[in-house]
């Protein structure tokens, strides 16, 4: 696995011990995503308004190790909320990070919470 990829590990809600206050809600497009910086990590945050849910994943595309996932389109694949990488349209589950149309390694996903119109991403340190 690539060196960069090692920095990103899926974090379960129960393991969160630090909520990073990322940006105001209106910094993110409806039914779309944007990227936030936390320490030396790039995290893609998605406002899935149609489901009234927020998701966060690594911004790194595991296919070619480029920081682009936040610029992709979101939607669902047979009911599973997903993100499509803008480079070659590889799709990943926003829930589990698994690659839905191929056998790439899963991407790391992180919990998100909204408080007072601010977006927080959860990490375990």
């Amino acid at each position: 696995m690539e060196e960069v990829q090692k920095k990103y590990k899926t974090t379960k809600l129960k393991d969160v011990n630090f909520w990073f206050k990322a940006a105001p809600v209106n910094a993110f497009p409806k039914d779309g995503g944007a990227c936030i910086k936390y320490k030396n990590l790039q995290i893609a945050v998605f406002n899935f308004e149609r489901l009234n849910k927020w998701y966060a994943t690594q911004n790194l595309s595991p296919e070619k190790q480029e920081m682009v996932l936040s610029r992709g389109m979101i939607g669902d694949y047979k009911g599973t909320p997903m993100i499509a990488c803008p480079l070659h349209k590889k799709t990943f589950s926003l829930e589990t990070g698994e690659n839905l149309n191929g056998d790439l390694d899963p991407i790391a996903v992180y919990p998100v919470k909204i408080e007072n119109d601010f977006v927080y991403v959860g990490f375990s340190e």
Partner: peptide, 12 residues
Amino acid sequence: SHFVNSEEEDDN
């Protein structure tokens, strides 16, 4: 902008 919470650019 690459980040919504920073002026920095992609460091990758």
